[in-house]
């Protein structure tokens, strides 16, 4: 019943086929695209490091700004203002070292592509990888509808939904069951990212285009104007970063090797005896 070497201490396991080839390929293409899009996005943000609400920019009232300033003691500091609250973020946001010099820049050199200030090249990276990201996403969607990855693997069952409290407790205690199916929190998170955050980041990106605004004026009404769309684009990007951090943490604490193997080769080791509850 199990093909691994079984010791008295280890629970018996068997390998199941968890991720189809198309899921694995689109996952890794997505990793590349999202990393480049985030890093080049921060390069673009650095060209005008402030966010607004509405159609146009009310320069005196940004909802977020990351700037350099000189404080009362005459020191250069980095300041991040969010909704009227000011935080000193010297060293990372607003003012940071780039090579041997201290630079006034919203995001630091080690978070931007290119590392030096170059909006034109940042935009080139951003749009090239945005196209690959969108095409890759469409391939994933079509394939996942055909091979039933979405309906079979991502939509939670009624039983899972009813057991959501238990799943939250298990996650809080870092207790993980190794089953072929994703757990309910995992499913809901993936669904939110795939059908809310990623479409949101794409559509708000499109809303920043004056040409696409002419073609699809409803985008402006949907997001409340170009500058609000730009702010939502940034919020979606932040949500993606948070997702990646939690995703990586979960990968590491619930069996780093097993998880990595399942998204590279497709094979995942499950507990031989499946628990009766989800």
């Amino acid at each position: 019943m199990s093909d691994g070497s079984i010791t008295a201490q280890r629970r018996p396991r068997r390998l199941v086929y968890r991720h189809a080839l198309v899921t694995r390929i689109t996952h890794w293409v997505n990793v590349l695209c999202i990393v480049v899009l985030l890093l080049s996005g921060m390069q673009i943000f650095n060209a005008h490091p402030a966010l607004y609400i509405g159609s146009a920019s009310d320069f005196d009232n940004p909802v977020l700004s990351i700037t350099a300033a000189t404080n009362a003691e005459g020191e250069r500091v980095g300041l991040t203002r969010i909704l009227g609250a000011t935080f000193t973020t010297t060293g990372v946001l607003g003012l940071s070292t780039a090579g041997s010099s201290v630079e006034a820049r919203a995001f630091p050199s080690w978070l931007t592509v290119p590392t030096y200030r170059d909006l034109a090249t940042g935009r080139r990276w951003h749009f090239f990888f945005a196209w690959i990201f969108v095409i890759n996403g469409l391939v994933y969607l079509v394939a996942s509808l055909i091979n039933r990855h979405i309906t079979r693997d991502l939509i939670p069952t009624g039983r899972q939904l009813r057991g959501i409290g238990r799943s939250i407790l298990d996650h809080a205690r870092f207790r993980f069951h190794h089953e072929r199916d994703y757990n309910v929190l995992q499913k809901l998170t993936y669904l939110a990212i795939i059908f809310l955050v990623l479409p949101g980041v794409i559509l708000t990106g499109m809303t920043m285009s004056p040409a696409l605004d002419a073609a699809f004026p409803w985008l402006l009404d949907l997001f409340g104007g170009r500058q609000t769309a730009r702010t939502i684009h940034f919020v979606c990007a932040t949500a993606i970063v948070l997702f990646i951090l939690v995703h990586l943490l979960m990968v590491l604490v619930s069996g780093a090797w097993n998880n990595t193997r399942s998204i590279v080769t497709g094979r995942y080791a499950v507990d031989a005896k499946e628990p009766s509850d989800d």
């Binding site: 080139r124 990276w125 990888f129 945005a130 196209w131 040409a211 605004d213 002419a214 073609a215 699809f216």
Partner: peptide, 26 residues
């Protein structure tokens, strides 16, 4: 850079296809 610049070609081709000569900006 030549590879990256194909992103602009895609933007131009697709956006021009979506816009008629008379499509107006808001």
């Amino acid at each position: 850079r030549k590879v990256l610049y194909t992103g602009e070609d895609m933007n131009r081709l697709v956006q021009r296809a979506l816009l008629s000569p008379a499509t107006m900006a808001r």
